[in-house]
């Protein structure tokens, strides 16, 4: 092989870099996310769940994106859920009204899975740590 010394050396460096995350966390399996999907509002009778838990688990990101475009770009206010309810499309007023603890509700799974959300760059002003 032409310049085999250099080639092999750089292959070794490459393998080291690529496997670094696994080597660094060796032995620390980490724990499952501790999430709390419970509703925390006394007004639970007013608005039933927007959609089923299973649907939310699989598609909440699509739902939120659709809401975002509908409210901001299409000027619509209400979402017709699959059971016929008319629900105002608002992260602050609707979602966070019931699921008030964003750390237990959102961050626990998102931190674990490494999926960054930039919702909190702007939204979440009605939570106590809004300035964070």
């Amino acid at each position: 092989m032409y310049k085999s010394g250099r080639v092999l050396a750089f292959i070794a460096v490459f393998l080291l870099l690529v496997s670094f995350p696994f080597l660094a966390a060796f032995g620390n399996a980490g724990s499952d996310p501790v999430y709390d999907l419970s509703v925390q509002t006394s007004d639970a009778t007013k608005v039933k769940c927007v959609e089923s838990t299973d649907y939310m688990k699989s598609s909440h990101m699509k739902l939120l994106q659709q809401w975002r475009d509908d409210v901001v770009r299409n000027g619509q206010n209400d979402f017709i859920s699959s059971n016929g309810q008319a629900i105002p499309m608002s992260l602050d007023d609707t979602c966070l009204n019931c699921h008030t603890d964003k750390e237990a509700f959102c961050d626990s799974c998102h931190s674990y899975s490494g999926v960054t959300m930039d919702c909190w760059d702007c939204h979440g002003t009605n939570s106590p740590d809004a300035k964070k």
């Binding site: 739902l63 659709q66 809401w67 619509q76 017709i80």
Partner: peptide, 8 residues
Amino acid sequence: IQTGQEKD
């Protein structure tokens, strides 16, 4: 995902 224009 349906959205409705509820005549508010």
